[in-house]
Simulated scan of single mutants.
Amino acid sequence: MSAEVVVVGSANLDYIIQLDAPPEPGQTVLAHHFHTQSGGKGANQAVAAARLGSSVRFIAAIGDDAEGAAMLSSLKAEGIDTSQVQILPGGRTGAAFVSVFPNGENSISVVAGANLGLSEVHVRESLNHVRRGAIVVVQAEVPVATIQETLDASQRAGLRCVLNLAPYVRIDERLLRHADPLVVNESEASALLSRPVFDEASSREAARQLGEIASSVVITMGAAGAYWLDKEDEGHVSAPAVGPVIDSTGAGDAFVGALAACLAVGRPLSESVQLGVAAGSFSVMRLGAQSSYPTAQGLGTHV
């Protein structure tokens, strides 16, 4: 049985600062700490799956700049196949500016850069080389047409596709039927359904409604865990108690990467969500995204 995870998505360099509170308009504040590391939802999810033992292939676009070179080096060090990462001449690698506050919450501004150059043609041709049984993962920091081509091409190739519709963008509802699962948080589910989704009860109802469109659904709820639904069953997975929350940046990506790694070895959605919740909960106790992701040994489990 294949354990390959193919991630189609974004690659950014994260610029992370820790500060007490966001500045008011016209105000200057002093930060406590600054560092950079590889990020982007796509790259984060690729690293999260690789850390848990999956064979991971990454399909993305970066600039031909120092940041892109550093990104490639970091991904290769994780054992990720980067042969289908496009290097765009004259392009600037995507960047994310992350402010982290004492309660672990964050605010993030993204400059997409080369991510907007990830073409439908490149994705289509890359997925032609993926063997059956692999899990394809795509998020929404790349062009909508590229997301839709990933879903379409996966369907044509008989590949299971995980769609993490984050950040929320509007896509053709016909293509949502190819999502297996569709993964959204409460905010993204609210945008999809045009009504508030904010707790376990509303997440359950949202999952049931979205389950009429997508093959399966997962709604993540932060510290409250996640609600999942497929054709056979549904349920809620509680998040474990964790130590002090240091930084929630990339916790959703840790969840998706772990979920994909588990699905790739044939585990059911219920077990995959459990592993995803464990990985996401682990990550919030450490600063940064990729630097906070667990190995299988760290979680005391295996995939």
Results as ranks from 00 to 15, higher is better:
Phe58Pro: 09
Asp64Gly: 12
Leu52Ile: 12
Gln37Pro: 02
Ala66Phe: 02
Asn44Gly: 04
Ser38Phe: 07
Ala31Ser: 14
Ala60Arg: 03
Leu19Thr: 15
Gly53Asn: 14
Asp65Gly: 02
Val56Cys: 08
Ala50Asn: 05
Ala21Val: 15
Pro22Asn: 05
Gly39Phe: 00
Ala66His: 06
Ser54Val: 05
Ser38Gln: 08
Pro22Phe: 14
Gln37Met: 15
His33Phe: 04
Arg51Gly: 09
Gly40Gln: 00
Pro23Leu: 07
Ala61Pro: 11
Ala49Asn: 09
Gln45Val: 06
Leu52His: 12
Gln18Trp: 10
Ala43Arg: 10
Phe58Lys: 10
Gln27Asn: 07
Ala21Phe: 13
Gly40Ile: 00
Gly42Thr: 04
Asp20Asn: 15
Gln27Gly: 05
Thr36Arg: 14
Asp64Tyr: 03
Lys41Pro: 04
Gln18Asp: 09
Phe34Cys: 02
Gly26Gln: 03
Asp65Tyr: 03
Ala50Glu: 05
Val47Trp: 07
Ala66Trp: 02
Ala60Gln: 04
Ile17Gln: 08
Ile17Met: 13
Ala49His: 09
Gly39Gln: 00
Thr36Glu: 11
Ser55His: 15
Arg57Val: 13
Ile17Trp: 12
Pro23Val: 06
Ile62Gln: 00
Ala43Ile: 07
Ile59Lys: 12
Ala48Cys: 01
Pro23Tyr: 10
Ala50Pro: 12
Pro23Ser: 10
His35Ser: 14
Thr28Gly: 05
His33Tyr: 09
Gly63Ala: 02
Phe34Asn: 07
Ala50Ile: 07
Gln45Phe: 01
Asp65Thr: 02
Gln37Gly: 13
Ile59Phe: 12
Arg51Val: 07
Ala43Pro: 07
Ala21Gln: 14
Pro22Val: 12
Ala48Met: 04
Val29Pro: 01
Leu52Glu: 13
Thr28Ser: 14
Gly53Leu: 14
Asp64Ile: 06
Gly63Met: 00
